[in-house]
Write a protein that binds this DNA or RNA. Structure first.
Lengths: 194, 194
DNA sequence: GGTAAACGTTGACAAATGTTAACGGAATTA
DNA sequence: TAATTCCGTTAACATTTGTCAACGTTTACC
């Protein structure tokens, strides 16, 4: 399992990992399997782990007063499931993260992530690049939300993240877009006529 | 002008600045005054500068097919105006940034920001913390956009960024929230009755 | 293999939001 | 100071989106 992570890290950084660093990574990242709907994080908990997804699919969501779920992130292989704010600031999270499919992941704690950030230059670099990418994607999403119609947002997710549509049901996609599943269904039936 | 920036940096980092570092910062950050509506950045340009606002107000926005503006960021004193993606990746920006009020700012180039990141530990730390804060705020905004009504989003901006309401007209606030100025006006008149 | 849950869709109706137009007053500027 | 633009609001109406209910199908699970 760790090979996949090593490969990922190497691909995303300029400096190669030494053998010792590879060993450290293997020790620090602990494999865990999540069954369907098993939680990585629940609301009001502090996010203890950052999870690198080896295989499977997870989702992050908030739950409103009426018990409705609102999807903030969808995560597939070779990406991270974590509430960065809670993980970084050690504050209680507003979100849930759970497995949508049976999922294999590698978990790292906050303490260990600090340790490796101070020890392995490639990891510091990686973390920084990931945080940036995350922020870029979020601004893009905010801009979509305030400037595009539901249909245009759906078009965009189809182009930007086609794999989401293959792996998650439509009510999850609708929630991610900030609309109801009925509205998404209508958009799709209109587009089918064209 | 630089004193305000020095104070800001010191307040946001754990290690104090040396006299030499203070001198370097004074050289690297160049003051510039923006008249009302003067651009810091236009669409399709690469964002050459990150601007620290000493006094004034700026806004970042996209412009859609119909020429309508959609506000992505509002920036007041002691914060930054910059398209982080364009600035970091050297890619053409999708956004405009201009001064809403007459604004005094300190500008730094990408090249100089790399230089100081490598030289001044406090600046590396600051940059990292700012990027994190930015991402946290963006996720919060995405979550608001997909899970709250227009009225609830308005309530939230009143609590979170009350100064925006004092410094920007309501059509700007409406755009930031992703609604029209008429809808915001109706929300306000309803709330006034309560 | 049978039962229950999840999924995607559709219809009727309600609610929220957008569009267009108009207005008075405030702020800006020539 | 006069003219003009900007601002915030309101009204009437159109459009989009949500809500509730129902349905057949697929999928998951015991």
């Amino acid at each position: 399992m760790h090979e996949q992570l090593i490969k990922y890290i190497t691909a995303h950084s300029t400096t190669p990992l030494t053998a010792a660093e590879v060993e450290m990574i293997k020790e620090i990242f602990v494999p865990k399997h999540f069954r369907k709907r098993e939680y990585l994080l629940q609301q009001n908990e502090i996010c203890k782990y950052a999870a690198f997804i080896i295989k499977g699919a997870m989702r992050q969501y908030s739950v409103d007063d009426k018990g409705a779920e609102h999807i903030t992130y969808l995560t597939l292989e070779n990406w991270w499931a974590v509430d960065r704010e809670s993980f970084t600031m050690l504050t209680p999270s507003n979100y849930y993260i759970d497995a949508w499919e049976p999922t294999d992941a590698l978990l790292i704690t906050k303490a260990d992530s600090i340790k490796y950030m101070d020890t392995i230059p490639a990891m510091r670099e990686l973390t920084q690049v990931l945080n940036e990418k995350n922020a870029f994607a979020l601004l893009n999403r905010v801009n979509s939300n305030i400037s595009l119609s539901a249909e245009q947002r759906y078009d965009r997710i189809q182009k930007t993240y086609p794999k989401y549509l293959q792996r998650f049901p439509l009510h999850i996609i609708a929630s991610y877009l900030g609309i109801t599943k009925e509205t998404l269904s209508r958009i799709r039936s209109q587009q089918a006529k064209k």
